[in-house]
């Protein structure tokens, strides 16, 4: 295959990954990593480096819009970024000592978890009682606009949420993903944040977390320009296209079908990893 053909095929694959990733809410990376490793036979380290760069692009692009709408809780994001970036540094350390096949197995399990998270029923939490002293001290309680109204909410269990974010950050750099599903889990179920706020704030943190991971990978040589260029441009284009279509469309069926598909890929990755391939 020539460089030109390779680039074009990779670009097409990345567009598809970005498109499906934004349409299903799974993110481009969970599709990109299997695509790069299973289809293009790219070593997992290059795949992780490349994917993390794409993650920075899509999350920053999306965060730009959410921040302007005033949905993102910037203080909460900044505070939790201490945990996610520290976790990312931890993950970039762990990757050195984790054999490639173990990374593949962990990736498979995370994939299944993410698939389950996208089809689960969402319950809207709006806590109005000021129960957490820490949330008040850190001024994390805020409000967000919904259908022309400003809705107040309070945040709970700050330390537990903070510790879960360390784990989410570690997974982000260990696997080259945004780990949005874990961030949302911590914010929705533990910190009791309304999901509109948790998904946008998670997205806000993803770029910074991925930047912390890639900072380490850059000087370790995980990031190759010839591989990164088509992937980043493709994922960005695909996700912009996906988010345009997303507005006003019902994606429930798509998410279910896609989650099943993703789970099959996940099982293949776990099997290959355990076989020591």
């Amino acid at each position: 295959m020539t460089v030109l053909l390779f680039t074009l095929v990779l670009l097409a694959g990345a567009i598809l990954a970005g498109f499906l990733g934004s349409l299903t809410g799974l993110g481009g990376a969970v599709i990109l990593i299997p695509l790069l490793t299973l289809v293009f036979k790219v070593d997992i380290h290059y795949a992780i480096g490349t994917s993390l760069i794409a993650v920075i692009g899509t999350s920053s692009g999306a965060a730009a819009a959410y921040v302007k709408e005033g949905i993102t809780n910037i203080r909460l994001g900044m505070f939790l970024e201490i945990a996610t970036t520290a976790g990312a540094v931890l993950g970039s350390f762990l990757i050195v000592y984790t054999p490639a096949n173990i990374i593949t197995v962990i990736f498979g399990f995370v994939l299944i978890f993410s698939a389950v998270m996208t089809v689960r029923k969402k319950t809207l939490h709006i806590e109005t009682e000021d129960k957490s002293k820490m949330a008040a001290m850190l001024r994390l309680n805020s409000s967000y606009p919904d259908k022309g109204e400003q809705i107040d909410y309070k945040i709970r269990h700050v330390p537990a949420g903070f510790f879960m974010m360390i784990g989410a950050g570690a997974l982000s750099s260990l696997l080259g993903i945004g780990a949005g599903a874990f961030k949302v889990l911590a914010m929705d179920n533990v910190m009791r944040i309304p999901f509109k706020v948790s998904t946008t704030t998670s997205n806000f943190m993803i770029g910074v977390t991925a930047a912390a991971g890639t900072a380490a990978y850059l000087h370790r040589g995980y990031i190759d320009p010839v591989l990164t260029f088509p992937v980043v441009v493709g994922v960005l284009a695909g996700s912009i296209f996906g988010s345009r279509i997303l507005i006003g469309s019902d994606t429930k069926k798509l998410r279910v079908v896609f989650s099943i598909l993703i789970s099959i890929i996940a099982i293949e990755m776990i099997y290959k990893g355990l076989k020591g391939h």
């Binding site: 036979k41 997992i44 370790r220 990031i223 190759d224």
Partner: peptide, 19 residues
């Protein structure tokens, strides 16, 4: 564009100038 596709199957690390 016409060169042969580089292989990424084995991790070698990038040359210093990209790091």
């Amino acid at each position: 564009g016409g060169d042969a596709q580089p292989s990424y199957a084995i991790f070698n690390g990038e040359p210093e100038r990209y790091k």
